Simulated scan of single mutants.
Amino acid sequence: MHRSGAKMAWNVFKFCTALRGLGSIMILLVLGVVGVTYYAVVLCNYGPALAAGGLDSLFALLVLIVFHTLLVMLLWSYFSVVLTDPGSVPPNYRPLADQERGEIDPLEASEFGPLATPDPANAGIRYCRKCNQLKPPRCHHCSVCGRCVLKMDHHCVWVVNCVGALNYKYFLLFLFYTFLETSVVTLALLPHFIVFFSDGEIPGSPSTLATTFLAFVLNLAFALSVFGFLIMHISLVSANTTTIEAYEKKTTPKWRYDLGRKRNFEQVFGTVQRYWFIPAYSDEDLRRMPALQGLEYPSKPDLDSQEF
């Protein structure tokens, strides 16, 4: 029995090590898909249509403007997720007074047993046995990164980073702009894709046709898959929970961090509307909303004493 457990632990560690090794490969894969799409849309199809003039050139101009705008926002959001630390536990972190008194919800308390805490009599203090440090509320240990991450949602191989408190908004915007971009590309290339199944002669070189076909299939696949992830994360934001918390709190009837849809949304995107659709926060929100820093979160019992 002991050997079986040791073997399972070794396999998990090996899997986590393999995920860390995917880093640059996944970034190159994302950039490769972007490159193929750009070549198909701009250089093979709508660039020549724009230069040809006439009514078709106006439609081509509209497509190219929308395409480049969404592409800039997609890449901005993507590299914001990749390059932004999701949030780590500060050195010498100490819990707030209410946590020290043990006033903690069942989900957080169930994450560790008595042997995991420096003080077994105080179940309100969360402690990570792997990092040998105290853990703030909603913090989880990432086996891939090898550290505790503030409000960890999941480790994403596509962004080669953990998704947590400080980059969750950027990840959502990446999903949002990826869905819009791939949907626009799919619709823009659909007439050219349909031509492949016609009986007439297909204009263009073999490389142009192959690139157009590949770009259409890739973008259609990404649009459908990302749409599912986007819907899932919209439901998580509306309940002010993460992927990990949504799984763990199935046995918890009440979720103390659910403040209502509007405030739940602001916990991720901030209160300043002009910043909602860009991967950045206003200085005002960063100053007034501790939740954006990943250490303190307002909850139902103390809503009256919280200020946003």
Rank of each mutant, 00 (worst) to 15 (best):
N45P: 00
L71F: 08
V63Q: 06
M73N: 13
A52H: 00
V36Y: 05
G23S: 11
C16F: 03
G53T: 00
A6N: 07
Y39V: 08
C16N: 14
S57N: 03
V41C: 03
S57G: 02
F67P: 04
L71W: 07
L43H: 08
Y78P: 05
D56N: 08
L50S: 07
L74A: 09
K7L: 07
L74V: 03
L75S: 10
M8F: 01
A6F: 02
A49Y: 00
A60S: 15
H68F: 05
A18F: 09
F15Y: 03
L58H: 10
L70E: 13
M26L: 14
V72F: 13
A40C: 07
L50V: 00
F15D: 13
A18E: 07
G32P: 01
L29A: 15
A40R: 02
L29R: 12
G54N: 05
R20S: 04
W76N: 13
Y78A: 09
L28K: 08
V63Y: 04
L70F: 10
L64C: 06
G23R: 15
L74D: 14
V72A: 15
A6Q: 14
G35T: 15
V12P: 00
A60L: 02
K14P: 04
L61F: 08
V36A: 13
G53P: 02
L28V: 13
W10E: 15
R20Y: 00
W10Y: 03
L71C: 11
V41L: 13
A18W: 04
C16R: 06
K14D: 04
T69W: 04
V63C: 10
V12C: 12
R20E: 15
I25F: 12
G21N: 11
V12W: 04
L22R: 09
A9L: 08
V30G: 10
S24Y: 05
K14F: 01
Y46A: 03
L64A: 02
D56G: 14
F15C: 12
F59Q: 04
A60N: 03
V66Q: 08
S77G: 06
N45L: 04
I25D: 07
L74M: 14
T69N: 12
T37V: 10
S57Q: 03
S24I: 15
V66R: 06
A52V: 00
Y39P: 01
L31G: 10
L28A: 15
A9T: 11
V12K: 15
A6P: 00
Y46K: 05
Y39W: 06
L64Q: 04
V12R: 07
Y38M: 14
I27G: 08
T17V: 06
S77M: 03
H68M: 09
V63E: 08
